[in-house]
Amino acid sequence: MVNLRLGSIAPDFKAETSAGDIEFHKWAGDDWVMLFSHPTSTLAVCTTELGGLAKRHEEFKQRGVKLLGLSANDVASHHEWIKDVDEISGSSLSFPIIGDKERKVATTYDMLDALDASNVDALGLPLTVRSVFIIDPKKVIRLIISYPASTGRNVDELLRVIDSLQVSAKYKVATPVDWVPGQDVIVANSVKKEEADQLFPGYKSVKPYLRYTADPSKK
């Protein structure tokens, strides 16, 4: 198992998915990727999450983000599960879901549940937690979040952190607490005053280390 951290290169892998076989790096291409895991198919929380993501898939596409799901069972079960997801949520799920019954990808990305004794399959093998990896076009891991099996993720928050990562990647800024696109951002601490004056004329300096400027992505 690779010891993955923010800034690590996302490990490449080959996998069977609900949309056909993929080689991860080749499939990702020059796009951002959100790789996320579910414990297993046909679970209640997982079904609601997949439906929520499928209904808002276009919002991820608009940001240049590909979605790639994973659960610790086979692809055949995914096809049946997708039918349930679409029926229940009114969605049309089209992003691929990895069949990882042998836990190869889950082990590589440290997605397996080490604490919850109830989050296991019929053989007693651990299932995955609700991991999220945001990976940039250079295959660098930019964000890692892990939720327990009992807690469904928030799609608005996933989109928000992607917006934050993308604006910070393009401009020399960071985003403050509760930030959403269009609100003021923070001039990065690495930017000296002379450069800040050029890049962000009219910025507001609250403290030498806290300087606000308008969201540059909205200009």
Score class of each variant (00 low, 15 high):
residue 1 M to T: 08
residue 10 A to S: 09
residue 12 D to G: 06
residue 13 F to V: 01
residue 15 A to H: 00
residue 16 E to T: 13
residue 19 A to H: 10
residue 22 I to K: 03
residue 25 H to Q: 01
residue 28 A to M: 05
residue 30 D to T: 14
residue 33 V to D: 01
residue 34 M to S: 13
residue 37 S to M: 03
residue 39 P to V: 06
residue 39 P to M: 02
residue 41 S to T: 15
residue 42 T to N: 15
residue 50 L to D: 04
residue 58 E to W: 11
residue 60 F to T: 02
residue 63 R to H: 05
residue 66 K to M: 01
residue 68 L to G: 09
residue 70 L to C: 12
residue 72 A to N: 15
residue 72 A to P: 02
residue 74 D to H: 10
residue 75 V to R: 02
residue 76 A to K: 14
residue 81 W to E: 01
residue 83 K to M: 04
residue 85 V to I: 10
residue 86 D to T: 07
residue 87 E to F: 10
residue 87 E to I: 08
residue 94 S to V: 13
residue 100 D to F: 00
residue 101 K to S: 14
residue 104 K to V: 15
residue 105 V to N: 03
residue 110 D to C: 11
residue 114 A to S: 15
residue 116 D to E: 14
residue 119 N to C: 11
residue 120 V to F: 06
residue 129 V to W: 04
residue 130 R to Y: 08
residue 131 S to Q: 07
residue 132 V to T: 14
residue 136 D to W: 05
residue 138 K to R: 14
residue 139 K to Q: 10
residue 141 I to N: 02
residue 146 S to I: 13
residue 147 Y to S: 10
residue 149 A to H: 12
residue 150 S to W: 08
residue 150 S to H: 12
residue 152 G to F: 03
residue 153 R to K: 12
residue 162 I to T: 11
residue 163 D to P: 03
residue 166 Q to A: 05
residue 167 V to E: 01
residue 173 V to Y: 00
residue 173 V to A: 06
residue 181 P to L: 09
residue 184 D to Y: 10
residue 184 D to I: 09
residue 185 V to W: 06
residue 191 V to A: 04
residue 192 K to C: 05
residue 195 E to A: 11
residue 199 L to K: 05
residue 211 R to S: 04
residue 211 R to D: 02
residue 212 Y to A: 04
residue 212 Y to V: 01
residue 215 D to R: 09
